[in-house]
Simulated scan of single mutants.
Amino acid sequence: MGMCMRFLEILCAIVLPPLGVFFRYGCCKLEFWVCVLLTVLGYLPGIIYAVYVIITDPERHYDDDYTPV
Results as ranks from 00 to 15, higher is better:
1 M>K: 09
1 M>W: 06
1 M>S: 14
2 G>W: 07
3 M>C: 08
3 M>H: 12
4 C>S: 08
5 M>R: 05
5 M>P: 00
6 R>L: 11
6 R>G: 02
8 L>C: 13
8 L>K: 00
9 E>S: 07
9 E>Q: 09
10 I>Q: 05
10 I>P: 04
11 L>R: 00
11 L>K: 03
11 L>E: 02
11 L>W: 04
12 C>Y: 07
12 C>K: 00
12 C>F: 15
13 A>Q: 04
14 I>Y: 15
14 I>R: 10
14 I>N: 12
15 V>R: 04
15 V>W: 13
15 V>K: 04
15 V>Q: 06
15 V>T: 11
16 L>M: 12
16 L>T: 10
17 P>N: 03
17 P>L: 07
18 P>M: 03
18 P>G: 04
18 P>Q: 07
19 L>H: 00
19 L>F: 09
19 L>A: 10
20 G>L: 07
20 G>A: 13
20 G>K: 00
21 V>N: 00
22 F>K: 12
22 F>Y: 14
23 F>V: 11
23 F>H: 06
23 F>T: 05
24 R>L: 15
24 R>D: 01
24 R>G: 04
25 Y>F: 15
25 Y>P: 01
25 Y>M: 10
25 Y>T: 10
25 Y>E: 12
26 G>H: 11
27 C>K: 15
28 C>I: 13
28 C>P: 02
28 C>R: 14
28 C>T: 14
29 K>G: 11
30 L>S: 12
30 L>H: 07
30 L>A: 11
32 F>V: 00
32 F>A: 02
33 W>I: 08
33 W>K: 07
33 W>T: 06
33 W>N: 06
34 V>M: 09
34 V>F: 04
34 V>W: 02
34 V>P: 05
35 C>F: 05
35 C>Q: 02
35 C>H: 01
35 C>K: 02
35 C>L: 08
35 C>I: 05
36 V>H: 05
36 V>W: 00
37 L>F: 04
37 L>Q: 00
37 L>S: 06
38 L>K: 03
38 L>S: 03
38 L>G: 01
39 T>A: 05
39 T>P: 03
39 T>H: 04
39 T>D: 01
40 V>I: 13
41 L>R: 07
42 G>D: 01
42 G>M: 00
42 G>Q: 01
43 Y>P: 05
43 Y>D: 06
43 Y>C: 09
44 L>G: 07
44 L>M: 13
45 P>T: 04
45 P>M: 03
45 P>W: 03
47 I>Y: 02
48 I>R: 01
50 A>I: 05
50 A>N: 02
51 V>M: 12
52 Y>S: 14
52 Y>G: 13
53 V>Y: 04
54 I>A: 07
54 I>S: 08
56 T>I: 11
56 T>Y: 03
56 T>W: 01
57 D>Y: 01
57 D>C: 11
58 P>Q: 07
58 P>C: 00
59 E>D: 14
59 E>G: 09
59 E>L: 12
59 E>A: 13
59 E>S: 14
60 R>K: 12
60 R>N: 09
60 R>P: 03
61 H>Q: 14
62 Y>C: 13
62 Y>E: 13
64 D>E: 11
65 D>G: 07
65 D>S: 13
65 D>C: 10
65 D>I: 06
66 Y>I: 09
66 Y>T: 11
66 Y>E: 10
66 Y>H: 12
66 Y>P: 02
67 T>S: 09
68 P>F: 01
68 P>Q: 09
68 P>N: 06
69 V>W: 10
